[in-house]
């Protein structure tokens, strides 16, 4: 535990040192603001209403971003689950769609973003679709692979117990896919954040990414750095929550892996 904290402490110490050095030379330096500027900035963004809109900006930005992230990842997950299971189970589906999805996965999603803006306008839909398109091919392929990994013996065994195809999917395949789906979503969240912030940077009126790129023009490091730290914290919390949920909801999964 202590060893894990060490690198964090080191980074903070180096920052504090560098910041103090620069501020000693030029008290108005904006690049490495001191702790008091951070406290001011966080207070201003999180606990004082914005003069122009009356909103508490950090919270409205966080809310806007999380809604987009959630909508994008959730729709991608739903699509991928259904499609991935079909591809994993049905040889015809696999033969038809596996190469197609492999190629789709190669398209850099950001290159498609202008098309999305043209088709869906600059509103929320385009951003959500970008996130969904960005992560769905990965999750779909992962789920299809996980389904194919289920030993043939299990399927035959279910048939000897009188199972029909529907029962095999709902009682043998799907329950074993849930925890693996969580793994898959956890792995794709990094990419989802990337697409979210890119889309917000390019066309948005709110959101964490929008704020960072807006304030970049004013070199407002005192706000940008806390925002980055906040985004990181959110990502860590979401990841930890998913992992905890997986452990609680699927105790057999952790036991089988070790």
């Amino acid at each position: 535990m202590f060893l894990a904290l060490l690198p964090f402490a080191l980074v903070i110490a180096v920052y504090a040192f560098g910041s103090a050095e620069r501020l000693a030379v030029n008290p108005n330096d904006k690049l490495l603001p001191g702790w008091t500027s951070f406290v001011d900035a966080i207070d201003r963004m999180a606990f004082q209403p914005d003069k122009r809109t009356g909103n508490y900006l950090l919270w409205t930005d966080t809310y806007a971003s999380l809604v987009r992230l959630f909508a994008g990842v959730a729709s991608a997950t739903l699509f991928s689950l259904i499609f991935g299971i079909c591809i994993g189970i049905l040889p015809i589906m696999r033969a038809t769609f596996a190469p197609f999805i492999a190629v789709i996965a190669m398209i850099p999603p950001l290159a498609v973003l202008p098309i999305l803006f043209i088709v869906f306008g600059l509103g929320e839909t385009a951003k959500i679709v970008l996130i969904a398109i960005g992560v769905a091919p990965f999750i779909t392929r992962d789920i299809a692979l996980r389904v194919e990994e289920i030993p043939r013996e299990q399927i035959v065994k279910a048939e000897t117990l009188g199972a029909n195809s529907w029962q095999i999917i709902t009682r043998v395949v799907l329950p074993q896919i849930w925890p693996r789906l969580i793994d898959s979503v956890r792995l794709s969240l990094g990419a989802a954040w990337l697409f979210l912030i890119s889309a917000e940077a390019i066309a948005s009126q709110s959101g964490l990414g929008y704020r960072i790129f807006l304030l970049r023009r004013f070199l407002a490091m005192d706000v940008i750095l806390p925002y980055v730290a906040w985004i990181t914290l959110l990502a860590v919390i979401i990841d930890a929550a998913l992992r905890l949920f997986q452990k609680r909801a699927f105790p057999w999964f952790a036991g089988g892996r070790s």
Binding site: P151, E153, Q154, V156, K157, T160, V172, P175, Q176, F250, W252, F253, G256
Partner: peptide, 12 residues
């Protein structure tokens, strides 16, 4: 049927 391995369902 009972196979050498994988005959039981790990999630149950």
């Amino acid at each position: 049927v009972v196979f050498q391995r994988y005959s039981v369902f790990p999630h149950l």
